[in-house]
Design a binder for these strands. Structure first.
Length: 298
DNA sequence: GTTGAGCGTT
């Protein structure tokens, strides 16, 4: 690989900026995003066809076309073909999210037959409108259904229609309701860090970063180990973080819940049930640290 | 291997 830097611009007419490559000749998307916050990929004009071509992106790594970046100027892609600058994206998404304009929610489906699968659910609810998420809650050991699940529709009208009636699913009457978990609008802290609940173990920090980049510049992603089904994502802008609080977002087909990173009840015993020296010393330590634990994630 | 109101491994 001959070039250490490749030229990247926000637009073909703009002045390019040089972005460093990795030792293996790839470019990290995060390197691009460091200069172009919100970037989700690169494209370039193919000299032969004169068409724009996308650069291969695999798990946050951009690969040179034909194994050679050449002397081309690469153009930054933004999510949803959105060519606006990041400030506008931040403002727009923050406003849209806050306004809550007929946004759909996850619906809980109560009374499911034990045998009903997610495919069954999807098949059934698709008759009302486009479905973007279904889940059947199961016992993790046995895999048996707990008899309830969740569904999310694309259209708000579909959701309204579905809530309004009872549903005969695989021979049982079921109800769809707004879940209790989102009955009360959430807490008002203004942090740049959000709590991402209901994560699954296969969600990587990279994937979370990729996902949340669409809302604004992400400065940190933290997944506690061992796996505890939640993560923390920190944005550069607290407005973006706050706008997302209370949302249910769908990542890899799973509905995750966003809330403020500062817990309502700081139950440290939940985090460290067997802390040596007892809870008092731990509480004192926690207070002193002002939540600087883990240290790099305030 | 059961069951039938509920609320999603913080």
């Amino acid at each position: 690989m001959s070039e250490l830097y490749i030229r990247v611009a926000e637009d073909e007419s703009e002045e390019p900026m040089e972005i460093p490559s990795e030792d293996d000749g790839t470019i990290l998307l995060s390197s691009v995003a460091a200069q172009f916050p919100g970037a989700c990929g690169l494209r370039y004009r193919n000299p032969e066809s004169q068409c724009m071509r996308g650069v291969r992106l695999v798990e946050g790594v951009l690969h040179a076309p034909e194994n050679d970046w050449g002397n081309l100027v690469y153009v930054v892609n933004y999510p949803k073909d959105n060519k606006r600058k990041m400030e506008e994206i931040d403002a727009a998404s923050a406003v849209k999210v806050k306004r809550g304009f007929q946004k759909t929610s996850d619906l809980i489906v109560l009374g499911l037959p034990w045998k009903t699968s997610e495919q069954d659910l999807k098949d059934y609810f698709t008759t009302f409108g486009e479905v973007i998420m279904v889940q059947v809650k199961r016992d993790l050991k046995t895999g048996n259904s707990k008899g309830f699940g969740f569904v999310r529709f694309t259209e708000y009208e579909t959701q309204t229609k579905v809530i309004a009636q009872r549903h005969m699913i695989d021979g049982r009457w079921c109800d769809c309701k707004l879940p209790n978990s989102k009955a009360s609008p959430d807490e008002p802290m203004r942090s740049r860090k959000i709590f991402v609940g209901r994560c699954t173990e296969d969600m990587t920090t990279d994937e979370l970063r990729q996902y949340f980049m669409q809302y604004g510049e992400v400065t940190d992603v933290f997944i506690p180990k061992p796996f505890r089904a939640f993560a923390f994502v920190t944005f550069a802008d607290d407005q973006v973080a706050q706008a997302l609080c209370g949302e249910d977002l769908i990542i890899k087909g799973i509905s995750v819940h966003i809330s403020n990173a500062e817990p309502k009840h700081n139950n440290i015993h939940q985090l460290f049930p067997n802390f040596p020296g007892g809870s008092a010393s731990l509480a004192a330590m926690f207070d002193r640290s002002q939540y600087q634990f883990p240290s790099s994630h305030v």
